[in-house]
Every structure is written in structure tokens, then in C-alpha cells.
Design a protein around this nucleic acid. Structure first.
Ligand code: NAD
Ligand code: NAD
Lengths: 211, 211
DNA sequence: CATTGTTTGTGAAAATTTTCACAGACAAAT
DNA sequence: ATTTGTCTGTGAAAATTTTCACAAACAATG
């Protein structure tokens, strides 16, 4: 029911609320959360409607309660495992970034063809050879894979991860993957993103002129 | 006039066409390009309408001509410079990735507070101390900045880049930046992306059931 | 206890984006 | 020369997403 855009914003709200709670703030208004998230207050209220969390008129939303409600909505009950395929420049940065960050959504295994990388433990994550990928993913009940291999290997890497049991893919290789419809693919294409920013950085391309 | 989404797809089409031309293919139909881009043929035609490129009925689009037309539309006439702020794990991966890739949109300078990094040349890019950022960006006429510093420094880094003359920012720090409206900000939030994929990876959350 | 002012939840409107569907173009075949 | 089949360009419809705007709720104030 909730759209992809809504899910993205909900995760953002959660991150903001986690900071808010550290400041000792107990309740928050839709317009405050909106300002911190760069959205409109109506948008925030709509999004929270989606998860069925109700606030109090005049007092806003209970921060702790909302965080808990977001957790129930967004997270898998028993936690979810993630696999990383490709322990190169980007893969290592990703491992460093996610290490220890969110135990219920952690990178549990890494895979690479390079025998130099296989067997090593990078940021607490074991690196396996590619021919073990299906077995390890199945054994660890991993549902999500991050693809950080060269373009030429991305399609194959994704297919093998799926054969192991993966249902969703975060793809950094700048190539559209051709996968079954029921597999959720999220592409992060840095080249595209940089070109977009560059386009709108040009003086003649004002994103939006709300005079 | 062209929306942000359209610009994103146009850069994708260009990448696909660059591969197409290497295969010696001289013209391409909207549905072929669409299949490679993961879009619909109507979408492709709409997007190309935006740049005013006209195809031939029955023959499709001339690959070389379309690439040239996309170049004129997307690229700044004299090329554009990019700055990288933060030469950490992610910053170095980004430098490696963009090095030599697209001369007309290259990372021309990097900045960091760490004296260990300052002065070094990473993947052909010189690393400057942060107190030179405004001068170097102004001197090199850099229009776009990539922010890869810790969350706590991201807002400040962006503001300083803008003071140097930057008009668009590609932000990897998972925090919404509060910047003037005329600055274009593109956020790449890997944590959000991973949580989204994980959400849709769950068996009970089928993205869309088009039976 | 009534009043005031603020905030939620949500129908409805507006805006944006995508898809449909078909007239017109035209290469290829006969 | 005519027919055939396919592809473009685009107006219009459909779908999706966002914003508007207001009744209902209710804490705070007097
Ligand atoms: N580095 C970046 O910042 C960056 C940015 C955007 C996109 N990307 C994309 O991410 C991917 C990885 O980039 P990178 O810079 O880390 O490259 P890299 O060359 O540093 O690393 C690639 C890794 O994948 C491994 N590998 C190669 N083939 C494999 C296979 N078939 N199966 C498993 N592992 C395999 C290699 O051994 C290496 O460790 C590429 O597709 C690249 O286009 C990278
Ligand atoms: N590593 C990843 O894959 C990854 C993924 C997603 C998001 N991020 C985000 O990207 C940013 C960088 O991540 P990282 O993993 O490269 O971190 P890192 O700690 O490896 O690198 C940060 C770099 O920024 C420099 N720095 C610190 N303060 C600075 C300042 N005020 N001005 C200039 N430079 C400064 C540091 O010296 C260091 O070189 C962070 O905001 C992180 O949340 C990283």
C-alpha cells in the first residue's frame, strides 16, 4: 500500500526522530519534523497516516511511540541479513559505513572473485569466494544484496544472489539489471546523479523559479 | 522545462547509446532503447521530445545524432569542474570511480581537514586543505561539489563550497542540507536506500502485484 | 466553563508523471 | 503505384503524488 517514495521518507523520519529523542524531546509536530526532513507538514501527516500512527491534536506525535511504530512497520521482525558482492573500492567503503550501524540490518557476508580478498575479514565481515554465494546466502537466510562488482559482472552477480534466496538488490553498477519482476531493485547510479547535479548547477538551468 | 526525472533518464539513454554506437549500430527504435533503460517506449519518446530531437518514422533515431543532441542539451559548453569535499573511505572510492571517466565533467580538486591527506595527489586529483576551498573553487570555476564528509561537517562544507561559487551539490552525508533554494541538491542516502530495499525484500511486501 | 489558538486527520483539488492510442510518415514488398 | 506494416510525435486519459483547506480535537488561558 505504501509507495516507494513514502517508505524512503519514513526511514528519513526515523533517523531524524532518533536524533530528536537524544535531545530529550518527547513529542514533535508535523511541521517540525517536516522542516528537518525538507518536506511539507501535510506530507508528513500523510506519510504517518500510512503506518496508522495517530498523533494528538495540539501536542503532535509522541517521539518514542512513533519510533516504535516505524520500527514495527519498516523492520522485519527477526532482523534481516544483507550480502555484499564485490569488495573493491566502493564495497570496502560500504562495509566500513554499515559496520555496526544497525544490527537488525547488517551486512553478514561479502563475496569476491579475487583470491586476495577471499578469506579476509573486512570490518567484521567475512569475505567468501563467489562459488559459495548461493550456499552462504541460503544458510544465513540473507534477503538483500548490495551489488558492487564491475558492470560486466553485475547481471550475473545479481542472478546468483537471487538463486541463493535474495529478494531485493541495491545496485551500484551503472547498468540496468534484467531480473524477475518480483525482485525489488534499487539503483544508485552516481554517474547519473553527478550529471544531473551538474546540469542543474548551470546558471541557465534554474531548477524551479518560484518567484 | 525538463523535469529532474527526465534529466536522469536522458543521462541513462546517453550511456546506453554510447555502448550501442560501439556495436556499430547506426539507428535505434524507441522500444529498443526503452528495453535497455527499463522504461516504456512512450516514455523514451516523451523524453526525447523534451530535447527536440526528431527521429524517422520506421527507422527510429540516429544514434550518433542523438548522442550529439544529448551532449548539447546536457553538457555545459566549456565543460564543468567538480570538487570533492572529504577524502575518506567514500571520497577515495568516488575519486577512483570518476578519474578519467568524463573529461568534461571531472573532479578537479579535493579538500580535507586531515593534514595527512592534504598535499597528496589521489587518482590524479590534488588534495587541498579546507581553508583553501573558497579560493580554489573560485579559481578553477568549479560549479558542482560532492560532499563526503561526516554528518556533523556536511552543512558547513556545503556552505563553504557555495561561497566559492558552487551551484549544485551531490550530498552523501545522510542529513538534509539547509541551503538557499537556488542551489540544487541531490542526496544519495545509502542507509535510506538499503532500508528501502530491505523493506521490499520482505516476502509480505510485494512492491506491486500486476497480475 | 467558555474561549482561544493550534494541530491533527483527511476528503478534495491540484500538480505532476506516465501511459494510451492513433494520425501521419515512410521503407519495403509486390 | 499501391499496399502493408511499423514507428514516430503527441493530444488526451489515466495514474500517481502532493498540496490545500477545514472540521474536529483539545491544551491552555482567563
Ligand atoms: N568506486 C565508486 O565510487 C563507484 C561509484 C559508482 C559506481 N561504482 C560501481 O560500483 C562497482 C564497483 O566499483 P569499484 O570502484 O569498487 O570497483 P573495483 O574494481 O574497485 O572493485 C570491484 C570488485 O569486484 C570484484 N569482482 C570482479 N568481478 C567479480 C565477479 N564476477 N564476482 C564477484 N566479484 C567480482 C573485484 O575483485 C573487485 O574486488 C562498479 O560497477 C562501479 O561502476 C563505483
Ligand atoms: N563509506 C560509505 O560507504 C558511506 C556510505 C554512505 C554515506 N556515507 C557518508 O559519507 C560521508 C563520508 O563517509 P566516509 O565513510 O568516507 O567517512 P570517513 O570518516 O572515512 O571520511 C571522512 C573524511 O572527511 C574528512 N573530514 C572530516 N571533517 C571534515 C571537514 N570539516 N571538512 C573537510 N573534511 C573533513 C576526514 O578527514 C575524512 O577524510 C559521511 O557523511 C558518511 O555518513 C559514507
Amino acid at each position: 500500500m505504501a509507495s516507494e517514495k513514502t517508505i524512503g521518507r519514513l526511514t528519513l523520519y526515523r533517523r531524524i526522530l532518533n536524533e530528536t529523542v537524544l535531545e530529550g524531546i518527547e513529542s514533535i509536530h508535523s511541521h517540525t519534523l517536516a522542516a528537518k526532513a525538507g518536506a511539507s507538514s501535510a506530507q508528513v501527516r500523510r506519510d504517518l497516516m500510512e503506518i496508522g500512527y495517530v498523533g494528538h491534536s495540539r501536542r503532535g506525535y509522541d517521539v518514542m511511540g512513533l519510533i516504535e511504530s516505524l520500527r514495527e512497520f519498516l523492520d522485519a521482525p527477526g532482523g534481516q541479513g544483507v550480502a555484499l558482492v564485490g569488495v573493491g573500492n566502493l564495497g570496502r567503503a560500504v562495509l566500513a559505513y554499515f559496520a555496526g550501524r544497525r544490527p537488525s540490518l547488517a551486512i553478514r557476508a561479502a563475496f569476491d572473485v579475487d583470491s586476495q580478498k577471499v578469506g579476509r575479514v573486512v570490518h567484521g565481515c567475512r569475505c567468501w569466494p563467489m562459488d559459495k554465494i548461493e550456499d552462504v546466502i541460503a544458510e544465513e537466510q540473507i534477503t538483500t544484496a548490495v551489488i558492487a562488482v564491475p558492470v560486466a559482472s553485475a547481471q550475473d552477480a545479481a542472478e546468483r544472489a537471487i538463486r541463493g534466496g535474495v529478494r531485493g538488490i541495491l545496485n551500484f553498477a551503472p547498468v540496468p539489471l534484467d531480473l524477475p519482476e518480483d525482485i525489488h531493485v534499487e539503483n544508485i547510479d552516481m554517474g547519473m546523479a553527478l550529471e544531473k547535479v551538474a546540469y542543474f548547477s548551470r546558471a541557465d538551468q534554474t531548477t524551479d523559479q518560484t518567484t
